[in-house]
Amino acid sequence: MKESIFIAKDVVKEYGDYIALNKVSITVPKGSIYGLLGPNGAGKTTLMRIINQITAPDSGSLIFDGAPLSKHHISDIGYLPEERGLYKKMKVGEQALYLAQLKGMSYDEALEKLKFWFEKLDILSWWNKKVEELSKGMAQKIQFVVTVIHEPKLLIFDEPFSGFDPINAAIIRKEILELSQKGTTIIFSTHRMESVEEICDHIALINKAQTILEGPIEKIKKQFANNSYEVITTDKVLNENDYFSIISQKETNYSLLLKEGKTQQEALQSIIQQTEIISFRKEIPSMEEIFIKAINNA
């Protein structure tokens, strides 16, 4: 089994009568891009705050890189919260230096790394500007830089693309993927399923304070795939038989459902006998469909 960077086991967190997390367990493999999904109020933010030691769980165990999560791990984790901002009256460079030093970097080290990142993202000219002079997207870029500046082993992004225009979102996505290739593990929380499909390889789905789904994305997709197929034929002559039923038809484009106990092979052969096939494809559910289905079933 692949090594894990972070393991949470049976984590419980209550706020008075309100249960934010009810025995939540997740395992984040090293080097993965891990999507933390769930509807609003499911407990994602609480879980991320627990990983960042902003709050402590009432019970449950937390393992970071093989050891119980403790204060000195703060410099190994970078967190971009959903509710994020900067001091408006402070200058960009000064502020980035301050935040980098709070993460445990020395002044010189922080300065050097910041110059590197500012140059890389072509924002060096903002160094002496006040944050209030920047647009929201510009400020977001600086927040991204100060999140990754100390080169943590684990990066946690909560809705990282909100507030970015498509061009800058693409730049940030590219940077995130680059960091992942260098071996950084990334936990990624979002509502936008298309970005999950694009970049995540593992997911966990949290609903009503509980984990209802966890694992590699391919495995989950397989698990949710029902026996439906998309078939395109040359003419509109396809009829139902003992092997499959037709769910829907649009011109020569059919959606078929395999009957109980029949195999893909048998169905395919029965189609070939009827007509000529242009394409035959197993329908794989989108993350969005899985998301909705899993939550409705739960």
Binding site: I54, Y79, L80, Y87, L99
Partner: peptide, 18 residues
């Protein structure tokens, strides 16, 4: 209040204790 309304507070307390 400034730290709260500018939303910087969560960024900071991921580095230091409140």
């Amino acid at each position: 209040i400034e730290e709260k309304t500018s939303r910087i507070v969560e960024v900071i307390i991921s580095s230091v204790k409140p």
